[in-house]
């Protein structure tokens, strides 16, 4: 059996500021080569899960564990998670005026390389790598020299995320609502880029509200998140079921008391 990339057990998390509990006991195991999709209605905790796994401030884990390749993920600062090979594709990529896209990416790549005991990448090799990966998502050269995401359209921002993922070559990619804000063409390009990065060594966690992304990126497993818990797991057929029937039919199931078998 292939290596376990991510093992989440009974994860509880709340918003630090007001103490609202969002994740109420999530368990999930993802192995190398697998693509898992997490679907769920608004407010079900999808983005919180992505944030907690990537180390964003503002959340407090109150119970449970998350191990990445056998190491305690939650104990690592965000930069260490990145350097260890965890990548988060942002739902809302941040604009950073004054920091050029290529400078940013070279710094990011070299931080990871240094962490792994590799020398800094040669300028010419870097250029070649960037050109190759930019083609993957059809990213305009002009965008590479602009400030990170500044003035990018919604689609360009998402393509830039997948482009960064391609350059940084992570082992676990968490894609948070990567389809949101994309038109049909952009969706096809972004999904094409993601599919090209599927590999037996890499695991992906695709978080999405709609099934349409999963027409392009066919997941091995689908989990339904509702009320901070995974209420259903299955194969890709589950996604189709959700598309047909919506999320409402799950509400009653989610509302059932947990742990009581009748």
């Amino acid at each position: 059996m292939s290596e376990t990339m991510l093992q989440i057990e009974d994860l509880h998390a709340r918003i630090q500021e007001d103490g609202t509990e969002i994740l109420k006991g999530i368990s999930l195991t993802i192995r190398a080569g697998e693509v898992h999709a997490i679907m769920g209605p608004n407010g079900s905790g999808k983005s919180t899960l992505a944030h907690v796994l990537s180390g964003r401030e503002g959340y407090e884990v109150t119970a449970g564990t998350a191990f990445y390749k056998g190491r305690d993920l939650l104990a690592m600062p965000p930069e260490e998670r990145a350097r260890e090979g965890v990548f988060l594709s942002f739902q809302y990529p941040v604009e950073i005026p004054g920091v050029s896209n290529t400078y940013f990416l070279r710094m990011a790549l070299n931080a990871t390389r240094k962490h792994r005991g590799l020398p800094e990448i040669d300028a010419i090799d870097f250029l070649a790598l960037v050109e190759e990966k930019a083609r993957l998502v059809d990213l305009d050269d002009a965008l590479l020299n602009r400030s990170v995401n500044e003035g990018f359209s919604g689609g360009e921002k998402k393509r830039n995320e997948i482009f960064q993922m391609a350059v940084l070559d992570p082992q676990l990619a968490i894609l948070d609502e990567t389809d949101s804000g994309l038109d049909i063409d952009a969706l096809r390009i972004v999904a094409g880029g993601i599919n090209a990065l599927r590999s037996p060594d890499r695991a992906m966690l695709v978080i999405t509200h709609y099934q349409r992304l999963l027409n392009h990126i066919v997941p091995d497993f689908v989990h339904v998140l509702a009320g901070g818990r995974i209420v259903r797991s299955g194969d890709r057929q589950l996604a189709h079921l959700l598309e047909e029937r919506g999320y409402s039919w799950l509400d009653e199931e989610a509302a059932l008391p947990v742990g009581r078998v009748s």
Binding site: R56, E79, V94, E95
Partner: peptide
């Protein structure tokens, strides 16, 4: 901007 700081850190930049 805390969002920009997190974005950079999530790509491997130290704080």
């Amino acid at each position: 901007d805390p969002d920009a700081l997190f974005y950079l850190r999530s790509r491997g930049f130290g704080e």
